[in-house]
Nucleic acid binder design. Sequence first.
DNA 1: ACACAGGGAGACAGGTCTGTCTACCATAAA
DNA 2: TTTATGGTAGACAGACCTGTCTCCCTGTGT
Lengths: 194, 194
Amino acid sequence: MTDKRQQLIETAFALFYRYGTHAVGINEILKQSGIAKKTLYTHFDSKASLVEAVLHYRDERFVNWLDQRMQDSEPGKAGILAMFDALDDWFNDRVETLAKFNGCFFINTCGEYAEAEALPHQLCCQHKSRVRDLIEAQVKSLGEVKEPEWLVDILALLKEGAIVTAQVQGDKQAAIKARRLAEQMLTAQEVSQK
Amino acid sequence: MTDKRQQLIETAFALFYRYGTHAVGINEILKQSGIAKKTLYTHFDSKASLVEAVLHYRDERFVNWLDQRMQDSEPGKAGILAMFDALDDWFNDRVETLAKFNGCFFINTCGEYAEAEALPHQLCCQHKSRVRDLIEAQVKSLGEVKEPEWLVDILALLKEGAIVTAQVQGDKQAAIKARRLAEQMLTAQEVSQK
DNA sequence: ACACAGGGAGACAGGTCTGTCTACCATAAA
DNA sequence: TTTATGGTAGACAGACCTGTCTCCCTGTGT
């Protein structure tokens, strides 16, 4: 029962992530998952609510993965740099949990629902806030920082830049380049602290 | 004659930029532009070739605008910072040349054609290369730089990060934040140079 | 053994999409 | 005046979309 629902979400995610939500029809999802149309409509009101569920699913999966990777290192500088290492693994398809890299699902979806009022757009925004919270927690562990808010924003901005560069330009080294700058900033931070 | 063609491209761009290329139908473009379907198909083979033309149009328009803004300042540091100022104007809808800010048309379109083999994806990639070239020219004017390639990459990456942050999170200050970091980097560069 | 719920298969309605085609109307050159 | 040309208007075909509905099969609890 809930098994079918999950299966639908996962199949839909794989297709949406590859081809975009508008480009993929319900029938394609049904064909690939081998699930009947009736079953889909018992679990979801409409395609829009399936899209919504897929966004929730990916959000949880992605944030959990990233959080785990950051928790594996010491809080603070190491944790932040671990984020960029995690991104590097993602870009180069060394993470089984996430699908083959195709950019950020939320940035892509946001492009399809560009109006700020659209629900998918808002869900994407919420996802980015959750990721920002992970960074913020690490920055707080750094100790006294001149302008912590700005540092958090810049680190998040670097992350977004790396993702887009890796996808559009196909530059799989983007995370490493961003990591280097982050390291410089954090080192400068340490020095000025002493 | 070519007038109609241009009109179609501009109407199509306005709609594609707002709603995405897949979400907008040919008929909507025709209705808004008041042009007949037959005329469209004398100028373009298919919707795909219209999308292609729109990407070229936006590419030229955007690159020309950004280039102009950078040329208005002294080459080097000032030129680079002028780029971030230009972005700030764009994000906050102070540029008539570009439409109301809705993220980067190329990033959005790339999300819709996520596969690297897709032609639109490649055109988006080419656009980003052209923008990178603008940055590269400015970095060359800086004089001796330790690793100019890396600096160019990072500045481009900051630019992408600012655009995405401004769109998804709605943070209209993103360009200013990125500009601040760029300024710090370039100042550090100057100091180490002496 | 029997009733019943869950799901597979897919027909179907109603709408939209792209792309073609016909019919008609301008304007301007010959 | 006549004849191209380029445009408008829109019917139309054929495909595909979402969402509903019916029919049938299968497994499970009683």
